[in-house]
């Protein structure tokens, strides 16, 4: 598969033009965190100096619809931080992230929340399904916020569960589902709003090889008409994606194009 996106590092200045409007683009993105406190507490006379930690440094990338992109790297390399920025869960310290054509760092928290609702689906490593709700109710959860009627929600959720092979688990609660089934419910929930971008953070991290493969099959199928970005250590995942962006210490190392 020929990548339809441009991935580049700002320091390399080897930009390639895109053929299709990207779903998400980040340009010269850095993210710094402050460790410790720079001011005295109410009961403390001494001032502790703050330490600036750089989680990401000058990362630029662009992902278009139809791409299945992997983020790889050791723990602490900045994979999750980059995912958070791409999903508009966080904003960069410097640089910019454009999601569905909107610069996330210019948006308020409320606007970014709405942007996520409309354009982003998230699959968590630990599923984070609501334990008291059935699989169908979990999948339908984002649709409530979009104002779907009860009938529409049930219909859409049932369809999505059927698409991930769980049409016989519609009424089961997460506690009654296996790990792989829970993760497929989470994928179905991420797709409920028909997002342009699906973000998955270690989606197979809690699953065995066989179950993880089934989840990957679902994500690969999803990527045919939307952008999917997966952060993972799992070689099985990285073998399935179109491209792998490898990070180390917050810097991009290289891009592997696997197809």
């Amino acid at each position: 598969m020929v990548p339809r996106s441009t991935i580049y590092h700002s320091s390399s200045s080897t930009n390639t033009s895109t053929e299709v409007d990207p779903v998400v683009t980040c340009t010269d993105v850095s993210r710094h965190f402050t460790r410790g406190s720079s001011h005295s507490g109410w009961f403390s006379r001494s001032s502790q100096s703050a330490e600036i930690v750089t989680a990401l440094s000058n990362i630029s990338l662009s992902v278009t619809r139809g791409e299945f992109v992997g983020l790889a790297g050791p723990s602490g390399s900045g994979k999750s931080t980059l995912l958070h920025l791409l999903a508009a869960l966080d904003t960069p310290s410097t640089g910019s992230v454009a999601l569905a054509g909107r610069q996330t760092n210019t948006l308020s928290t409320r606007q970014r929340t709405k942007l996520r609702l409309d354009h982003v689906g998230i699959v968590f490593q630990h599923f984070h399904l609501l334990p008291s709700l059935s699989a169908r109710a979990n999948v339908a959860t984002p649709l409530i916020e979009l104002g779907y009627s009860r009938r529409q929600r049930r219909q859409r959720a049932t369809e999505l569960l059927a698409n991930v092979g769980l049409d016989d688990r519609v009424h089961h609660t997460p506690g009654e589902l296996s790990g792989g089934e829970q993760q497929r419910v989470a994928v179905a929930r991420a797709l409920a709003t028909d997002p342009d971008l699906v973000i998955a953070d270690e989606p197979t991290g809690e699953l065995d090889t066989t179950t993880g493969k089934r989840v990957l099959d679902v994500l690969a199928a999803v990527a045919t008409d939307r952008a999917v970005i997966v952060a993972s250590h799992d070689p099985q995942v990285l073998d399935r994606v179109d491209r792998v962006i490898r990070l180390r210490d917050g810097h991009r190392q290289k891009v592997d194009e696997t197809t």
């Binding site: 869960l89 928290t109 929340t113 709405k114 996520r116 998230i122 968590f124 984070h128 959860t141 916020e145």
Partner: peptide, 16 residues
């Protein structure tokens, strides 16, 4: 808290 944070991540507004 985890469920509320999940809903926020999924796009639930503070008002909701």
């Amino acid at each position: 808290r985890s469920a509320l944070a999940t809903l926020t991540a999924l796009g639930y507004s503070e008002r909701s």
